[in-house]
Amino acid sequence: MLKYIISSVFTLLMTFSVMAQNDSIVNDSIRYAQKYGLRLGGDLSKITKTIIDDDYTGFEINADYRLSKNLYVAGELGTEERTKSNEFLNSTAKGSYIKGGIDYNMYKNWFGMENMIYSGFRLGASSFSQTINSYTVYSTNQSWPQTTNLDGTEFKGLTAIWSEIIFGLKAELVNNIYVGFNVQLKARITEKEPANFENIFIPGFGRTYDSGRFGIAFGYNVSYLIPLYKKGN
């Protein structure tokens, strides 16, 4: 599933970068005032995944505010619930998160266009709980019947803080409506882990890996710009 989302994201990303370069007439003589304002949106990939994946529920709203020609303050607010299961362990993580930081536009637009290819930084924090729905005691010798425990232990009050580097694209599809894709590379700074268990999934961070503190996630956003004022280049 993740592979499918990733491939769609990249295919679409390529399509948009082609579009961005094809149309546009260069006209240096006209001074064009760029729009400044608050851009509000949501993550469509989380909504899509909520619909198609029974083990996932997620919702995220995001916003950015343009400070200067290339600099934006940006943030996300969301909730996620994720059930992970295999033959031996079934657990659910549930909670909400907030992320804040900046986006820097690295793309030099053609005349009259306000697209972004950007890099950004975020600090994220999550408050969540984890529930062990069931586990089967792992025995290599299965002569005796296997023992499955359904006690449903819940670990509340878990937290995590992480940093993110974001690479992404935002393109103005029609007037003031933007679509965007981004890749988030994450590193946990600190986390509160449950006793005799671990954080399998952290809302906002995503799944964790045995290999260490790093994680990766993708976003597919649609947003609307509330123009507040215009300013020349």
Binding site: L89, V137, S139, N196, E198
Partner: peptide
């Protein structure tokens, strides 16, 4: 006593 191993192995006794 059930002791946590990892996400793949789950718990051992």
């Amino acid at each position: 006593e059930d002791v946590y191993l990892s996400r793949a192995c789950g718990y051992k006794s």
